[in-house]
Structures are given as structure tokens and as C-alpha cells.
Design a protein around this nucleic acid. Structure first.
Lengths: 214, 214
DNA sequence: CGTTGAGTTGAGCTCTTTCAATAGGAGTGG
DNA sequence: CCACTCCTATTGAAAGAGCTCAACTCAACG
């Protein structure tokens, strides 16, 4: 990227800090692009009747596309203390047009987001509660898990409610499924947010993933 | 776009025809980008146990990103007779890098796909059967509906099974909900695939959409 | 060390699914 | 053009997965 472009980017980006639990960006009238410099966030969609759906989680280094308000409204919320850089999507893409490298990078990240969103659709549309929870753990392990001998260690920054709102379940069901997975020896838990995945292969099987041979 | 780029694009694109019901593109080992020149398609994800989730529908002029096989496999299927142009995503993006206009166009379409995918997540995660069907109709009306005085006319190219697999329901539930909407006077149906939306406002209310005042 | 909110566990209920039977549409061949 | 057939869609009754409501337990923090 050229220095000039970099400066422009800095000029149009709004830097923001947010403390855990805080709404960073309420739904506006235009699309936003947000870069998560530090921390973790959730993108929450609001439907009628106060129902909420967590549409995506984001971690350090992730890029988030926050849609303008339409049939539903969206809010970006901090799960932990965060540092964020927000851009109006139109401006950002206008600049990026003259910076193919940047544009390409953004496109690849957006494609990855799309792929994750589709995986979520599969879970929400066709999987049982247990499969959803297992899928969630496997997915999180891939994004923020710390590999250990004989497993993977997870520090989940989100609450049971966040998981429930992400998986289309209730907190009670999340709790019950975690208990079942624990009793099956697939995971170990410690406190509210630490999960140790003991048997990734079995977990993937319970996640309803296609076996690679299929 | 330059002529040279256009020629390159033509050279790397694979043209394909498909008849209704046919699988156009089984899951490969690399991402694909497909342009729907004519017809309509569905992108189907396969989970264990033969379960299928329709992840997206596409119509004439749409661009589809078909993911490589991962935890689930994806198949692009023709709903009607189609003409398609398929690219290996890596090649396509390589060329697009030198064509910012093209890249930008692709990015905007992918962002639109992401937004639709998220709307689907809301439906699958937090909406009742009736709300899902109403949302589906409203969404389809926006994409392929023909406005009429006092409503909107829809020719749905997909079967009840496709709708069910898209909305995370069964064909029986789809049928029952359509009946309810018909009896409530919100829609009229004719044959298998024609639906007339009589009252868009009420339909949006039943879709669980946020009222614009909220 | 107590308080408070988050998480877990249990029992009954609801919405959607499942299973089964009927009706309807589209295409075919007489 | 109509009758026949097959597959899709509709409708009904029973079963099940997850939800709701309620009580209890635990962990973090002052």
C-alpha cells in the first residue's frame, strides 16, 4: 500500500475503544467496515419481539462488515475490552478501489466471513442442539484455540447467552449439551469460560461434519 | 475493464449449461466463483446423515461463491435450465487484482451475499416457522417479484423441498404455513409455483421484521 | 466472607417433526 | 383432448426435541 493511501485510510478511520459488554456501533443508516485491532466482538441482529441473533463473533485482526439497518438492525458489541477502527463502507471501498492489494485483502476476508456464515446456516437449519454446540467448539478451537498435547484449550470470551443467541438455542440447552459432552469425556470445563477439547475427532463426528472419506 | 482483461477472463472461465435439477458443480478442492448468466440455482450444503441445507438461491445476473469442501461439502444445482460461467476463485481474483473495477464489483456482490446469509441466520436461529416462510416470500419478492397493483406476483422456481431445506423446516410445515397465510388473506396461490403477495405490510409484520419506527 | 449475577439442573409444555393417508398437477400416451 | 400415472403437495394425528418456568448452585467481586 502506498504511504498516501495509508494516510488517507488513517484519516477516514474512526478509532474507538470499548469496554466489555458495551455496544460499539449501533445500527446506522450506512454500512460500516470495522477492524478489530484488539479484543473480541459480537455482531448482533435484532428482530421483532426483542429477539436477538448473534450473527458472528470476531477476534483480534478480524474485519467486520456491519450492515445498515434494513429489515433487521445490527449492533456490534464488545465481548472484551476492545480497540477498533471503523470506516464508512462506501468511503473505504472508494479508497480501496485505487489500492488493489487492499481491496483484494478485504475481499478474501469477506469471502471467509461468508463461508463462516454459511456454516452457521447449516448448523441453525439442520443440526441438533448437541451438534450445534460441538460445531461451535470445533470452530472456536480453529480460531482462538491453543493446541495442547492431546487436545486444544479454549478461553471463551462470550457468555452462555451469547452462545445461545449464536446457535439459536437457549442458555439452558447450551448448559445441558456441555454437560453431556463433558460426561462423554469429549471436553473438560473449568470455570465459566475455559474448555479443554480432549477428543477433536469425536467432537467433529458429533458436530455432524462430513467424514473426510464420505 | 480493459479488452485484454476481458479476453483473459473469457479464457479462464468455463462455460456450462445445466438442465433443471442437475448438479452443476460438485464440491471441488478449491473455491469457485460462478456467474449465473441465465436461469436459477441453489447452493446446497451437505451434512452427515444425508441432511441438506440450501445455503442460497441465485438468479440471472447473480454471482455465486462456491466454497471448497471443508467440514461440509457444497453442490451448486440448477433449479431451471441454466447458463453458467465458472472460474477457479484463486485465478479469478488473481486477474481481478489488476482490474480494480472488477474487484470492486465482486466485493460489493459478495457483501450483498453476506448480508443475505446473515438475514438467513436470523430466520433460522430465532424465527418461528410462519415468520420464516413470510420472510422468505418477502425476500423473494424483492429479488424476482413482479410488482402489480395492490401486491406482487412471484413465480417460484424452487420446490417445497428446496424451500424447506432453505428455511430449516420440513415440506409439511412449509405447506401448512402457506395455507395459514392464504387463509389469513395475505397471499394467494395458484398451482405449485405462483404466489401473489396481497399485503406486503402485514407480511413483513408476520416476518418478524422490525417496524421502521422501532 | 457475603452478595449477586451467571450457570446448572429438573419437570411439564409447545411447536415442529414424523408417519401416514389423501389430493392435486404436470406430463405422457392413447 | 382426455385419461392415466407419477410425483409433488396438502392435510391429519401422534411423537419428540428443545423451550419455559422454577429452584438451586457456583463463581467472581467487592
Amino acid at each position: 500500500m502506498t504511504d498516501a493511501a495509508y494516510l488517507q485510510l488513517q484519516a477516514m478511520g474512526r478509532y474507538a475503544r470499548a469496554t466489555a459488554g458495551e455496544a460499539v456501533l449501533a445500527d446506522g443508516d450506512q454500512n460500516q467496515i470495522v477492524f478489530v485491532a484488539r479484543g473480541a466482538t459480537k455482531l448482533v441482529a435484532h428482530a421483532s419481539g426483542g429477539r436477538e441473533q448473534v450473527v458472528a463473533f470476531h477476534f483480534e485482526g478480524d474485519l467486520v462488515s456491519v450492515p445498515a439497518r434494513g429489515a433487521h438492525s445490527y449492533t456490534l458489541c464488545a465481548l472484551q475490552d476492545c480497540e477498533l477502527i471503523a470506516f464508512a463502507a462506501a468511503e473505504f471501498l472508494g479508497l480501496a478501489r485505487s489500492e488493489p492489494g487492499l481491496l483484494n485483502e478485504v475481499l478474501e476476508r469477506v469471502l471467509a466471513s461468508l463461508a463462516r456464515s454459511r456454516e452457521k446456516s447449516i448448523a441453525l437449519g439442520r443440526k441438533t442442539a448437541q451438534e450445534r454446540v460441538a460445531s461451535f467448539l470445533v470452530s472456536m478451537a480453529g480460531r482462538i484455540g491453543m493446541p495442547q498435547e492431546g487436545g486444544c484449550l479454549l478461553h471463551l470470551p462470550m457468555s452462555r447467552r451469547d452462545m445461545a443467541d449464536s446457535l439459536g438455542l437457549t442458555i439452558e440447552t447450551i448448559s445441558r449439551q456441555l454437560t453431556e459432552l463433558r460426561e462423554a469425556g469429549l471436553i473438560e470445563t473449568s470455570g465459566r469460560s475455559v474448555v479443554h477439547l480432549c477428543d477433536n475427532a469425536s467432537l467433529q463426528a458429533r458436530a455432524g461434519h462430513l467424514s473426510s472419506a464420505a
